[in-house]
Amino acid sequence: MRTIPFFLICLVIGGIAFAAALTLGNDYYFFAGYVVLQYVVLSTAWNILGGYCGYVNFGTGAFFALGAYSTVTIYTLIDTNAFPHVVPIPVLMLVGGAVSAVVGLGMGYLTLRLRGAFFAIATLAMAVVLETLVVNWDFVGGSRGAFIIRPETIAPFGSYIRYLFLIMLLLAVASLTIARLIERSRLGYGLATIRDDEFAAEAAGVPTLRLKLIATTISGALMGMAGAPFPYYIGYLQPQPTFALDYAVNAIAMPLIGGTSTWVGPLIGALLLGSLQQIIIVTISSAVNLLLVGALLVAFVILAPNGIVGLAHKYLQHKDDDFVGRRRTGLEAPAPQVESSPTSEAPS
């Protein structure tokens, strides 16, 4: 399937989901759905670097918070009494995305020479550094946090949360399309070589640093875009919960549970785990949340290391030894001619 039809189909499915939520007639579903969709974006974004390229990023919370604090900065800069909510949310998302993209690129330059656990530690350190900066930056509220009073309603959606939900839905569709596009492109194959063997990739002429930088930039930008509307959603933005490890852990757990090598994995993982968390918050307690993530993660690592996508593939195809979880349509070469021609000359 080409990219544009895929995008349109996702839009239609998203539209149906939106319409279904409307018919339920309770805004709670939009509040809960927003969080799930936010995780679809975050885990898809994480997977571009973590799943395709094999670099584990523990800084999801930081990129997300950067997007959120970009919004707070703009909100604070503009006289809110004179011009209430003059900057539309999509513009805020572009700004938040741009800020996170720049930080992603910078982080890439500084840390992508590190590999494995060292890279993961560096991203974690970056999150801590950024949190400290924000906590000590009074302009955006410092450790007290920042308020954004969201408007009650917005035309033609009715309540504001419906609008936020729709925006996050569009971003989720866009992220999935981007992830799928990368997966089937030369970039995706290049990232796969880096994941499998970085030294061999270099020897084959893959420009490893450049590809990794592209991946961190795209990944960071999407995380920032997911964070930008968050102050409008939450109303009161605090540094500690915004930079919290919850985002990083969830953004890693969801692709791992779904399956890291395709765009479907993070989607399934986020829908499943995100919804489950929302249900548990309402029915049991919000504290059980991360416990559940931990338990599921352990179970999946042991029982289904290739995630739900891997399990499904195994069940449908009965050959798990051959499973890589990636569709191999992007780089097909013509079948070789069987009849041999004398080829004593060098291939040119």
Binding site: Y189, D196, G205, V206, L331, A333
Partner: peptide, 28 residues
């Protein structure tokens, strides 16, 4: 140092990652 999770064919095709090498991809 192969790419173990990619197929034999993908490994070969990725040997020709560079544009100059891809000119003669099918033949090579």
């Amino acid at each position: 140092r192969l790419f173990p999770k990619l197929t034999v064919e993908e490994n070969l095709l990725l040997g020709a990652f560079r544009r100059t090498a891809r000119a003669q991809l099918a033949r090579n």
